[in-house]
Design a protein around this nucleic acid. Structure first.
Length: 568
RNA sequence: AGACCCAUGGUGUAAUUGGCAACACAGCAGGUUUUGGUCCUGUCGUUCUAGGUUCGAGUCCUAGUGGGUCUACCA
C-alpha cells in the first residue's frame, strides 16, 4: 500500500522491545497487560495506557491481558469491572482470553509470602501504623529496625498462618519484607506485604481477611501471567527496585517494568477524587456528562474511539512531563468525523426569512449530498418553501467588511437551493430586535441547474419552517477556564470552573428527512455549525443532540481581528 | 535535605544512536470551494547554562540551573 520507505520512528519502549526480540529474550515473545483497579471509571489518561499496551503488543505480534488489580476490597466493585470492559472494547481492543483478576492469585500470593518467610526475607510485625511510620525514618534519615524484625522463621510462619486464619483483629499485625531500614529508597525499608482487613471482596467474598499490598501483588501477577513488558507510569519508578527484588528472591518469571510519563491534557483533570467531587456535588450531570474526561463521557459526547486512539498516538511516549494542547484532540476528532459524519442542516438560533416572490403553497424537494468527502454516502432531499429559518448570526443589518452572509441589498445562496436577494429586515419597534428578513429569490439560480450567472459570496444553511423538526441541542465548552486547574497554589480546581461550559438550546430546528440517522451515538455534521451526535436522552418525540466539537471557524477569527483593530 | 527521573520551536514528538535539527498540532499569508469546513501552497520559529572529549555534540563526560517524583496497613 504505502510506497514510502521511511520507517516510522519507534518510541523508547518499542526500541527496548525490538532489542529484546532481536536478542531472543523470552524467545521473542511480547506480552503486555492493562491493570486497572476496579474502583472508578476510565478516563483519557487510561486511554493512553490502554492504547499503548494493546497497540504495542499488536505491533510486535504479542498479546495483552486485562487484569483487574483488585487487592483492596474496600472501594472495589463489580460495577466498575463492567464499565471498564465496555470502555476498552469501545476503543476497539480485545484482551487475551478471559479477563483476569489479581484476586484469582490470592492463594498463590500467599504461597509466595511463605516462601519469603522461609528464606528469612519476611517477618510479621506487631507494630502499630504510627510506630511503623515513625521507624521508617525520613528522606535522608535512615529508619530504625522493628523490635519484631528478628523473629524466627518458625515463629513468622506460625503467626502469618494465624493471620490468615483470622486470629488477630484488623491492623494488629502486618507481614513485611526484610530488606534494609537504611535504604535510600523509602520503599525498600522493609515494605509491607500483607495487612489484615476484614472487608467483603467483590469476588472472593469473605474468604480472606488478609490482603496483599500493591507491591506484593502487581509484580507477582505480572510474573504469574508471564508478562514480558510491564508498562506503567513514572510515579512507579521508585517501586522498580522492589519489583525486581521480589522477583529475584521469589525466583519467578522476570517481568520487566518500564515507566513512561502519563499524558496530561490541557483543561482536563484526571484525579479520581476530584472527578468524583464534580459528580457528587452536582457540578456535572454524572460520570458520563459530555464535559467529563471519562471515556463514558467522551463516548456520549460523540468522540469517535479511533480519534482518541490517534490522539494518544500523536501525543507520543516519553519520560518527560507534558501538557498536550486540546487543539490536538479537536483536530483528531474533526479529522475522523469529517470522513464519517453525514451532513445535515440544523438551525440553532433561528431567524425567519420570507421569500416574498416564492409562491405560498409551493414546495420543492432539493437534492443535497450527504458527505462531500464520501460520494458513496449518497444524497437526500430537503423541502424548500416560502418561509425558512436561517441562523440569526448569518444576518447583519449593517455588516462589517468581509462579511459574506445575508445583509440588505446582498445576495447569498441557500445551500442546495436558490440564491436570495435580501430586501429588508423587520424589527421589533420596542426592542430593536430583528424579527424577520424579507428576500426575493432568483428562480433560475436553483442549485445544480443555475443559469442565472449571479454570484453569491456566501452560502448559508437553512430549514423550511413548515417542514423542520424542533429539537434540543446541547452545546459544550471546556469545563475549566484554566489549562491546569489543579496546578495553582492557593486556588483549587473548582475555582476555575467554566460557568458557560453547557448551553442548552431548547428551540433549535433540524431538516426533516433525517429520521434514519436518529439513533443514540450517531454522529452528524450540522453544516457550518460543527459535529454533533444523537444523545441517549433522545426519544421519538424529542430529539436531543450534543455538540461534539465546532468546525474550524475562520470567520470568527477574522471578526475578532477586525474588532481588535477597531479598538486600537 | 537525600535519592531517583527529566530538559529540543507556542504545544507534543523525531533525529539513521557522534555527521546539514525534522514531523504533527497551533499561528500567520495565500489558492480552491455551493460548508468562512475539507483540500492545496507558502511562512514563522527550536537543542537550559558553563566547561570538557572529538575533525565534528541535541546526542558522550563534568558541574550548575530549572522542573518532576518519593516518607498511605491505596493502587
Amino acid at each position: 500500500m504505502s510506497s514510502d520507505h521511511r520507517e516510522e520512528p519507534l518510541n523508547f519502549i518499542e526500541q527496548i522491545i525490538k532489542e529484546d526480540i532481536e536478542s531472543g529474550k523470552h524467545d521473542g515473545r511480547v506480552h503486555t497487560r492493562f491493570p486497572p483497579e476496579p474502583n472508578g471509571y476510565l478516563h483519557i489518561g487510561h486511554a493512553k495506557a490502554i492504547t499503548l499496551n494493546f497497540e504495542i503488543a499488536q505491533k510486535f505480534g504479542g498479546k495483552t491481558n486485562l487484569r483487574f488489580d483488585d487487592t483492596n476490597p474496600t472501594n472495589e466493585d463489580t460495577e466498575y469491572v463492567d464499565s471498564i470492559k465496555r470502555d476498552i472494547r469501545w476503543l476497539g481492543f480485545e484482551w487475551e482470553g478471559e479477563a483476569l483478576y489479581a484476586s484469582d492469585y490470592f492463594e498463590q500470593l500467599y504461597e509466595f509470602a511463605l516462601r519469603l518467610i522461609d528464606k528469612g526475607l519476611a517477618y510479621v510485625d506487631d507494630s502499630t501504623p504510627d510506630e511503623i511510620a515513625a521507624m521508617k525514618g525520613d528522606i535522608g534519615v535512615p529508619g530504625k529496625e522493628s523490635p519484631y524484625r528478628n523473629r524466627t522463621v518458625a515463629e513468622n510462619r506460625e503467626l502469618f498462618e494465624q493471620m490468615r486464619a483470622g486470629a488477630f483483629p484488623d491492623g494488629a499485625k502486618v507481614l513485611r519484607a526484610k530488606i534494609d531500614m537504611a535504604h535510600e529508597n523509602l520503599l525498600m525499608r522493609d515494605p509491607l506485604l500483607y495487612r489484615i482487613k476484614r472487608d467483603h471482596h467483590h469476588r472472593t467474598g469473605d474468604k480472606w481477611c488478609i490482603y496483599p499490598m500493591y507491591d506484593f501483588a502487581h509484580g507477582q501477577s505480572d510474573s504469574i501471567e508471564n508478562i514480558t513488558h510491564s508498562l506503567c507510569s513514572l510515579e512507579f519508578i521508585h517501586h522498580r527496585p522492589l519489583y525486581n527484588w521480589l522477583i529475584e528472591k521469589l525466583e519467578i518469571f522476570p517481568s520487566r517494568q518500564i515507566e513512561f510519563a502519563r499524558m496530561n491534557v490541557a483543561y482536563f483533570i484526571t484525579s479520581k477524587r476530584k472527578l468524583r467531587r464534580l459528580v457528587e456535588e452536582g457540578y456535572v450531570n454524572g460520570w458520563d456528562d459530555p464535559r467529563m474526561p471519562t471515556l463514558a463521557a467522551m463516548r456520549r459526547r460523540g468522540y469517535p474511539p479511533m480519534a482518541i486512539r490517534t490522539f494518544c498516538n500523536k501525543a507520543g511516549i516519553t519520560r518527560r512531563e507534558n501538557l498536550i494542547d486540546m487543539n490536538l484532540l479537536d483536530f483528531c476528532v474533526r479529522d475522523e468525523l469529517n470522513q464519517t459524519a453525514p451532513r445535515v442542516m440544523a438551525v440553532l438560533d433561528p431567524l425567519k426569512v420570507v421569500v416574498t416572490n416564492y409562491p405560498e403553497d409551493k414546495v420543492e424537494d432539493m437534492e443535497v449530498v450527504n458527505n462531500p468527502e464520501d460520494e458513496s454516502m449518497g444524497t437526500r432531499t430537503m423541502p424548500f418553501s416560502r418561509e425558512v429559518y436561517i441562523e440569526r448570526k448569518d444576518f447583519m443589518e449593517d455588516p462589517p467588511k468581509k462579511f459574506f452572509r445575508m445583509a440588505p441589498g446582498r445576495n447569498v445562496r441557500l445551500k442546495g437551493a436558490y440564491i436570495l436577494h435580501c430586501e429588508k429586515c423587520i424589527k421589533d419597534e420596542a426592542t430593536g430586535e430583528v424579527k424577520e428578513v424579507h428576500c426575493t429569490y432568483y428562480p433560475d439560480s436553483r442549485s445544480g441547474s443555475d443559469t442565472s450567472g449571479i454570484k453569491a459570496k456566501g452560502t448559508l444553511h437553512w430549514v423550511s419552517i413548515a417542514h423542520a423538526r424542533s429539537c434540543e441541542v446541547r452545546l459544550y465548552d471546556r469545563l475549566f477556564t484554566d489549562p491546569t486547574p489543579d496546578g495553582h497554589d492557593g486556588k483549587e480546581y473548582l475555582d476555575f470552573l467554566n460557568p458557560n461550559s453547557l448551553e442548552v438550546l431548547e428551540k433549535a430546528y433540524i431538516e426533516p428527512n433525517v429520521g434514519a440517522q436518529i439513533k443514540a451515538g450517531n454522529p452528524l455534521q450540522f453544516l457550518r455549525m460543527g459535529y454533533f451526535c444523537v444523545d441517549p436522552d433522545t426519544t421519538d418525540g424529542h430529539w436531543v443532540f450534543n455538540r461534539t466539537v465546532t468546525l474550524r471557524d475562520t470567520w470568527k477569527k477574522i471578526n475578532k481581528q477586525q474588532k481588535g483593530k477597531k479598538k486600537k
